[in-house]
Amino acid sequence: MSSQPLRIGVVAGEPSGDVLAAGMIAELKRQHPDAIIEGIGGDNMIAAGCHSLFDMETLSVMGLVEVLSHLPAILKVKNALIAHFEKYPPDIFIGVDAPDFNLRVEKALKQKGIKTVHYVSPTIWAWREGRIHKIAQATDCVLGLFPFEAEVYQKHQVAYRFVGHTLADAIALAPPQQPARQALGLASSDPVMAVLPGSRNGEVSKLLPIFLATIYEVLKQKPGCKFVIPAANQHRFDFIAQFLQEHATRLYAEGTILLTKGNAREAMIASDVILLASGTATLEAMLCKRPMVAAYKLSGLTYKIMQRLYKAPFFTLPNLLAKRKIIPELLQDDVNPQMLSQQLLGFLNSDNTALIETFTQLHKTLAQDADKASAKAVLDLINHE
């Protein structure tokens, strides 16, 4: 390898990828302090030492149909990003999740002779397995978070490394509740529910009104319950604050609903139960050892498409990891205040010991020192001529 500083391109498309990439970047920087790391990232990646060339928010779009209206802006960023890396070729390019965007960038750069890694396996084990051929064309290696993914890569003889999940390394096996409550100013004796309506604008717009109606339902039976909503970023914070001021003025003003910027993990640990949008947050809730109810709503057309294409038995990570239904996962019309509140109250009125034990066992399988494992995989590929 030359004596020149390493040049590494990294792109994450949403907050969960920003967290994953940040840990890997911090480890790469620890081993190579002069490395030049640039691409697209959020606050965590930037803090770890990545120079973000574009605003990550441009890529944070959900759904098959919803992305179409944002396509011109996304394509403009893609083309500018490829042009930048062609002009300043990195030793390796790492696409973190966001496969519809990153695999296209990876393919273009790989064709120029640049080594590429895709960090976070696309869900080919759940739908559109044929995408593995495009993955093979785009990347030299896939870094996977979950052990059940390896089988499909072995089947198609595509390079894959299970590196575990950085969240499993960061969160204690038995996170203590009271310090988190103290940090948020919550009483030790009150029932507490964390409410996470998603990290993307589309998710929050769809789920927040239903989640607020669910809060009112829960309060009918648990009038002393407190609710913490940790907004994923400033964009979401502003939107949620405005919504609460318009639709839950009294609850917001009196502190029954506490809105924070960030602190999602602290809110989860402080809670007795969690209501959340399905996604990476379900994994974090599992690692925090808190019972949860996961919900998701897609546009009508996206849902019809997914009904035909999705083949996995579950859509939440805890259920997929356990290979059985251990948490309620509600979709489309089932995402309503009555069904959500019924499931949440069931958890609030139980001790949930068996569920917590299952969460703990799953946690142990994912704790693989992912930041070091992913950084090692990247450096191994750089050094392998």
Rank of each mutant, 00 (worst) to 15 (best):
A267T: 02
A281E: 03
P291V: 07
K297T: 05
G300K: 13
A277R: 01
I269T: 03
A285P: 03
P291T: 09
V293K: 10
I274Y: 01
L276R: 06
L287N: 08
L298R: 14
Y296R: 12
R290F: 00
L283K: 13
M268F: 06
E266K: 10
M268D: 00
A285Y: 02
M286N: 11
L276E: 09
A281T: 13
A294R: 03
A281R: 05
L276H: 07
I269W: 00
A281Y: 05
K297F: 05
R290A: 03
R290C: 00
E266T: 08
R265G: 13
L283N: 11
L287P: 05
A285L: 04
T282Q: 14
L276N: 10
I274A: 06
T282V: 08
L275V: 05
E284C: 11
M292A: 11
K297W: 05
K289Y: 07
L283S: 11
A270E: 02
L298H: 09
A285N: 06
I269D: 00
A270H: 02
L283D: 06
V293C: 12
V273Y: 03
S299R: 12
A285E: 01
L283A: 11
I274H: 02
T280G: 09
A270P: 03
A270I: 07
L287C: 08
S271I: 08
L275I: 06
M268T: 05
R290K: 07
P291N: 04
A294H: 08
A264D: 09
V293T: 14
M268Y: 02
Y296C: 09
L298A: 15
